[in-house]
Design a protein around this nucleic acid. Sequence first.
DNA 1: ATGGCTTGAGTGTCAAGA
Length: 265
Amino acid sequence: MLLATWNVNSVRARLPKLLGWLRKRRPDVLCLQEIKCLDEQFPRAELEAEGYALETFGQKTYNGVAILSRAPLADVARGFPGGEEAGARVVAASVGGVRVLNAYVVNGQEVGHAKYALKLRWLEALAAHVRGELARHPRLALVGDFNVTFDDRDVYDPAEWRERILCSTPEREALGRLTAAGLHDALRKFTAEGGHYTWWDFRTRGFLGNRGLRIDHVLLSAAALDGCRGVEIDVEARQGEAPSDHAPVIATLESPRLPGRAGPG
DNA sequence: ATGGCTTGAGTGTCAAGA
């Protein structure tokens, strides 16, 4: 199963690009963040025509998340307890034996801002929610735009970004408490090297010099990580006409072994 | 350089992103 996550930065502005990308990469599940529209404004028909079932949790103008899937989505949940004050940022569903949580984490604006305090508070509530979900679903994936780098390997210029928003120690500790709940940074199963980025600033034309950050992540439970065969950041999608400022991240997950089907041995 | 660029809202110019 190909499980992808992409902050599209407006699903309506990105629709031609999104349709082209879906036809090219054919993910089984795609989690979108920053759809920036109400549920009734979501381009449902166009995406269903590509063979996807979908569930949205939108709001006017800002935020908003959606899950697309080639297989039916079950047990859909919009939002989570304690996450209400920050808007439409989490949608979850079960598909292919995996519990998928799609998150758009609060940006925080700058260290010390009221929105920064909200970000830290919101991440704590999410961690508590994830602990409960993990207890019910051994195979779990928490994916999305976390707006936090794990460490300086995820930052093109650590000196410039030192203790700034997306890189501050309290944010990284909050992300650490999320993974301490029982999740693993899937990319780090395959490489310890820095320089793998998922976001580049429009304003500084950061993509041209690969001045980026890795803030979009695929976090997997131990059981899901065991079946993870690769993680790719699709940098090509950040190029071309009218791209999002984020690149998609695609994880390859093996289907779970079914009981009683161990095979010849 | 409190900027640079992009989107949504709404038709002039601001909020928000990260």
